[in-house]
Design a binder for these strands. Structure first.
Lengths: 255, 255
DNA sequence: AAGTGGTCTAGACCACATT
DNA sequence: ATGTGGTCTAGACCACTTC
């Protein structure tokens, strides 16, 4: 159809991400060089360079001057998946997980949702609403939007047996997650679902996840403040990696 | 000193980030256009373009085709990883940090606090209580216990000029951090300090930090739910991820 | 010597917004 | 009409690795 065609560097990125997702390119494999890509894709070298550079920033490949471009091993996705799935988390505590589906519908992407999921307005989006229980005590209200084209059979799943998160990872491993944590007062119906006291706040996690290089799902996870908390353990050595450059510059500037 | 000079686009980025941190460029301000930058910095337009594009990716500026490039007003939001120093965080948003010290006392470790900081009962502990402001709006109440033997001169510091976190890292780099995030209702005095509405919840971060292989500080950081959120971006390759678990030791401390 | 990534240039065309 | 960002090109020089 009409849709203004994507920029060439983006098309190149999409193609390479696709090859990685399909297993055509496996971790450690060498990706075509800039010159080869420029030739085969009929593109200037600068355009191929931009595609590969952005893939580097996004963690898909590693580039070594003089050697080449290599597919990275994203095996730690188990880490992301662990946090994705509240059923696993509950099982790890040795407790019983159960789940009630409140809603499972189809709707059309529009406005913020469309841009958050990077779909054209009007695209099909599945909306799920569930309550998760830990030993029969409600612990999470999950509001989830899923890009329909990524998970066409979404509405036929039995989400009392498999969580949406587990279902999504079964289609394709999730690559990336972006999340925001907030403290809010719940809406009355959420408060009832979670059996919360009248003035108790909720701990809200907004999470957007990526697979195959595209956002595929947006979740709003609400937890009773009195019964749920997030914890983490950090070691500077390892976390300095991601934004090392920025942080260093800023620290030098703000002395 | 001939150190391989940084690439030009990076120098340009550094300069603009510096202007944002210094307040020379304030949120909403217009940044010079690509053509202006190219001319003034004696650089090609593509190089200026790359600098501005990367600043966009990193959340510093917003670009609107046909209109220009504008400094973003970064919402109170910090990466869960580098929540070390709220002053840096605020500076990075191009805002003004200030601080009021409510309390700075010495007390004796006992019970849970002694075991959390791994000191013998009766050991000296400094207790600090501060309110941090972002552009004169209160954004954090910091309650911090510091092992006195680690920071003997703690009480002589001027914490309206250097944050406790910055002071601690100046003594010795922090090695490790353990943190828990919660949603709670604030105590009335905290609510007043943070100028919060009556039923607004706080986002609480409990953090224990290690240096020289020992826990040296325990902090309870409370933020107004309507004005503060934690955000994070996770890729499988970057290791640490906040996980939902029970942390018994910290729980008892936060009564 | 040949290939690789890293950077840079001086042009170019386009869609868009402001005047 | 002018200026803006968004993209793209066909060259170029460099430092580095491999052969």
């Amino acid at each position: 159809m009409s849709a203004t065609s994507k920029p060439r560097y983006q098309q190149l990125k999409d193609r390479i991400i696709g090859q990685i997702s399909d297993g055509e390119l496996r971790p450690g494999d060498r990706v075509s060089s800039e010159n080869q890509l420029a030739h085969s894709s009929k593109v200037s070298r600068m355009t191929a360079n931009r595609a590969l550079r952005e893939l580097t920033d996004e963690g898909y490949v590693e580039r070594i001057a003089g050697r080449g471009t290599f597919v990275l091993d994203r095996r730690a996705s188990s880490h992301v998946r662990d946090v994705q799935n509240i059923a696993d988390e509950i099982a790890r505590r040795g407790h019983q997980h159960s789940c009630r589906v409140l809603r499972a519908t189809r709707r059309r992407a529009r406005g913020e949702l469309a841009s958050a999921l990077d779909t054209p307005p009007g695209a099909s989006i599945y909306h799920l609403q569930l309550v998760h229980f830990e030993n029969s005590v409600p612990i999470q209200v999950e509001d989830r939007d899923v890009v329909a084209s990524f998970a066409p059979a979404c509405l036929e799943q039995d989400f009392s047996r498999i969580t949406p998160s587990a279902y999504l990872t079964s289609i394709c491993p999730l690559q990336e997650a972006e999340q925001v944590v907030r403290a809010e007062l719940p809406r009355p119906e959420v408060r009832d679902w979670l059996q919360m006291k009248s003035q108790e706040p909720v701990l809200v996690v907004l999470r957007r996840t990526w697979a195959r290089g595209r956002p595929v799902s947006f979740a709003r996870l609400q937890h009773p403040g009195s019964r749920y908390e997030l914890s983490g353990h950090y070691r500077p050595n390892e976390s300095e990696f991601a934004q090392a450059t920025d942080v260093v510059q800023l620290e030098a500037l703000s002395k």
